[in-house]
Design a protein around this nucleic acid. Structure first.
Lengths: 345, 345
DNA sequence: TTGAAAGCGCTAACAT
DNA sequence: ATGTTAGCGCTTTCAA
């Protein structure tokens, strides 16, 4: 026997009031006497009533779902972000649905297509291929918070970490540890679209410029989707090309894991022969051999900002407000065993 | 301007039929002439109509949500399982909501409490502390599929991998590689409740018995929630107690990562001084130094079985059928660099 | 083969 | 301070 379903009408009858009064009490709306409120609360308690979230969302013309559109879930990065966002969303009556775009143009376009998006009350989108103009052109009709790349002056709220500063920090750290030929695994040339990769690459160049060290373009190698496998392959390609290098800045910790493995296969010691620094501060990094130095992007505060911005728009039914908000959270260097430098001031 | 919301009535008007006919066509119910069907389909296409899942679930008295109750999301194991289950669920009009129990009794009891569970149409529960009787006592009123531990004869459908065989396989592999004093990280004494840990431990003992090797109980050390940190700590504890060992069977790959790191800190070479084998076959394992030998539980087929069993009950509104189904998927040894043995037949 | 009516649980808008 | 009405989009039931 399925449990008795207690509705608002049941509570109203039990408390001797109307459904509306029950609704008002539940939603903390004013206009109920202390006495009535107490009776309603007692009835709720007594009957074990819980609001039917589906009915409430239905009535409001909403689904209660927030879409989180990310490239993949291979590494821990997006999994952790998803968990944090979900916790924040639950506290406010929503839940998070994860969609993987596969980091391809088609995947991203499909994910933000009208049909897919309309099932959500709002979306958090981390594009890796599309730029603001393209996202804008998709004509998304729910609130959107963009994530992880720099796009000046878009119509969307935008939360990102300071990738350029982070890349600079990481590279400068390698230089201070004595590196002069620093490979950039996952690096991308600056061609129009800003992305996590191009921005961190910009930081890499910035640090070289400040230190007066020339950049050898051949040391900038792509790493597809920044997975562990991609990192491994990238180093193997550099080695095959016989390019000397004494430092590696890897754009993600996940890829850095593959880099460390590749260096081990090549018989190069870390940090004695080659220093390595990652980016993301995944917990796994502190258990690698050697423990990985990395950049910590402070993801917890990013998650709060994201949910605040998004749900504010969702609740106020103002999908595309006039004033898009730009939030930049700052990065911090975490020095462990894979580098020779010291913590910077 | 929010996009025009196209409803079933709009489609009906456009096609010159009633809502019911549209509904029938959409749901593939019989009783619509080929001609009518074509007109309805054309109207749907023309207007860009999509069914409102919230309304449909509301009408059906459902939420459309499947709860996935797991101990944590620290490692990749449950994150991957969640992703797979979600893909399967989406294809059938449901979505997966992840709940973390924290691997504690209170956390698990809270997660399966009436209030929490009633928001789901069905749940997939991976208990680590509770046994079948306790889960049963909670009086869950939606379909449940249990996961990951052995419980004979419960009222719930139950999908698990063959943990005992996997533990046996791993241990036997270490023995064949020459190990005689094998530490068991995450091992648990067999006390009433079967769990992932006690079952794999049973496999460990079984292998020792078959090989005629005595088990040193002091080498069986707990590892809390099987995280990387727990694995690290476990090995450090064994070392502090000065117990000699030449092999380690770690109950999860996540913990195995910490084990490898600890052995590196202790200056013990793997696999020359100590062989290590994990369990789960996380992708990360093949990039560790050394690459981790492990047990592959074939999670993909587990995920399909789980969703099939669960949604069958959900769709047929038969939460507690008379015949609970027990599914056991088999495990496979993956030999890499952290052990000295060869692949078993 | 098709349609009309009713209602799922909730809340905005409007009485009282 | 509290109640009544109406209706969100869909499908079950019953009628034509």
């Amino acid at each position: 026997m399925m449990g008795v379903v207690v509705t608002m009408s049941d509570v109203a009858r039990e408390a001797g009031v109307s459904k509306m009064t029950v609704s008002n009490v539940i939603n903390g709306r004013p206009g109920a006497s202390t006495d009535t409120r107490a009776r309603v609360l007692a009835a709720i308690e007594h009957l074990g009533y819980r609001v039917n979230a589906t009915a409430r969302h239905f009535r409001a013309g909403r689904s209660g779902a927030i879409g989180l559109l990310v490239p993949h879930l291979d590494g821990p990065y997006y999994a952790h972000l998803a968990a944090r966002l979900d916790t924040l969303a639950k506290a406010r009556g929503y839940h998070v649905i994860i969609e993987r775009t596969g980091a391809s143009r088609e995947g991203e376009l499909a994910a933000i297509s009208a049909g897919r998006v309309q099932q959500y009350d709002g979306i958090v989108f981390s594009p890796v291929q599309l730029d603001t103009a393209e996202v804008s052109a998709a004509g998304i009709e729910v609130p959107v918070v963009l994530l992880g790349e720099r796009d000046l002056a878009g119509p969307f709220d935008h939360v990102m970490m300071d990738n350029v500063a982070g890349g600079d920090l990481a590279t400068m750290h390698l230089i201070q540890g004595g590196a002069r030929r620093i490979a950039l695994v996952g690096g991308r040339q600056d061609v129009g679209v800003d992305s996590m990769a191009t921005l961190r690459t910009r930081g890499y160049r910035q640090a070289h410029a400040k230190a007066g060290i020339p950049v050898d373009e051949r040391l900038i190698v792509d790493a597809d989707s920044f997975t562990t496998a991609d990192g491994y392959d990238a180093v193997m390609r550099i080695a095959r090309d016989q390019l000397p290098f004494d430092g590696v800045f890897v754009l993600t910790d996940a890829a850095a894991m593959g880099v460390l493995r590749a260096l081990a296969d090549l018989g190069r010691r870390v940090p004695q022969d080659v220093q390595v620094v990652g980016f993301d501060n995944d917990v796994e990094g502190q258990y690698l051999v050697p423990r990985l130095s990395t950049i910590d992007p402070d993801n917890d505060s990013m998650a709060s900002r994201i949910m605040d911005l998004l749900l504010h728009r969702v609740d106020s039914r103002a999908p595309l407000a006039a004033h898009a908000v730009e939030v930049v959270t700052s990065a911090r260097l975490v020095v462990r065993e894979s580098t020779r430098g010291r913590v910077l001031a």
